[in-house]
Design a protein around this nucleic acid. Structure first.
Lengths: 205, 205
DNA sequence: TCGTACCCATGACATCTGTCATCCGCGACT
DNA sequence: AGTCGCGGATGACAGATGTCATGGGTACGA
């Protein structure tokens, strides 16, 4: 006989997390047996529940992203199915999520019914990806930014000045400007602020 | 006997919206009888359901914010209780929400149990506000930005250049720079990007 | 009616940013 | 051994940005 599917649910906003748990609780064949509110809690929670079938991971979490958590889980529990659930359908997220071993990628915009459906499908060995998002990810191509460029862009995100960036990253001001300049060109932006916005949108940060 | 509390739920992410509906559906005395996915849909949906008791409004929605929707509902249905539910506990949001006639202000970080509780409390005439958030709102004081300053900051949000801002807002470049300059000083920022970030954080945009 | 606050604008100035050419060192690949 | 990509850096330059002084106009409350 089919036993109940045991699910780990990781999502930082408790109201949303508990609401999703309630939603899944309505399904007779699914049970949320573990929850985590931070990305860096996920692995520990999973270790405490050796009988898990599926992990449902939000990307935007404090401590570590759901994608990082997915990579950790995939290394330690290769049989565990991984569903990424996120607010933003950033194409770059999808790519790194799949590379981290995710089996499904859902956006919170999708109808709620797809959640339980995705849980069942990944357990059956299927992969679940929004076709529109998959197309966007392929169209956008890979992340064109180098590690340093990403680093500098992230640091520049909240309006730091070149001098601050230089000292924070242990680089010279000129080097910081160079990285920002190449990033701006790669993203066809007109200044650092726009470059940051574009990179964020694509999920490249 | 007490009849069931009829709730309108407005939230753009369908998965979250339906999950919250499922959560509230577990309460025997609460029923979600209407849903909206956009801010500018709320009023129409409310008109189609004259027997509503409480409206639950997310702030971040396309079309119109939950706060704008709250103001509309408050004008047309003064007896309807309004609960604002939001991801970000921006102090500025709280202030404008209460000025728009909201009865409760919840952040999605709070435990799920508070949702049903808040619905019952506002119906009993109480107001529900996170005390920490209320203190922060009072400590921050009112929005120091003038209309134009806010307008320019909003337009500058995604990295537009001064020339673009000037033509988009039908101002001269120098005037744009002046507004940005005063805004930067009021927010004790070091450039426009930081000013935008601070204003966003406080809920002043 | 006077002051004050806001809106709009200009010009001048110092500084910050973005671009470009050019350089060095290092590791990886051929 | 050569060269290619990448990290790191410098100097120079044009253009964008932030500040300040100063000038208008309008609206509104004292």
């Amino acid at each position: 006989m089919n036993r109940v599917i045991k699910v780990l649910l990781a999502e930082d906003q408790s109201m949303v997390r508990e609401a999703l748990a309630a939603l899944l609780g309505l399904e007779p064949d699914i049970e949320v047996v573990a929850q985590a509110a931070r990305g860096d809690e996920v692995l520990g929670v999973a270790r405490a529940h050796p009988d898990l079938d599926v992990a449902l991971l939000d990307i935007e979490m404090p401590g570590a992203t759901g994608i990082e958590a997915a990579a950790q889980l995939h290394r330690e529990f290769p049989a565990l199915k991984l569903v990424i659930l996120t607010t933003f359908g950033r194409p770059g997220y999808l790519r790194t999520a799949m590379e981290s071993g995710a089996d499904a990628f859902l956006v919170k915009d999708a109808p709620a019914a797809q959640l339980a459906e995705a849980v069942r499908k990944v357990l059956a060995g299927e992969r679940v990806i929004d076709p529109t998002l998959a197309a966007a990810a392929l169209a956008d191509g890979a992340n064109p930014l180098t590690d340093r460029e990403r680093e500098v862009l992230r640091a520049a995100e909240n309006g730091a000045t070149n001098a601050e960036l230089a000292s924070r990253l242990h680089l010279s001001q000129g080097t910081v400007r160079n990285y920002l300049s190449t990033a701006i060109q790669k993203l066809t932006a007109r200044n650092r602020a726009e470059a940051v916005r574009i990179a964020r949108e694509k999920g490249w940060l």
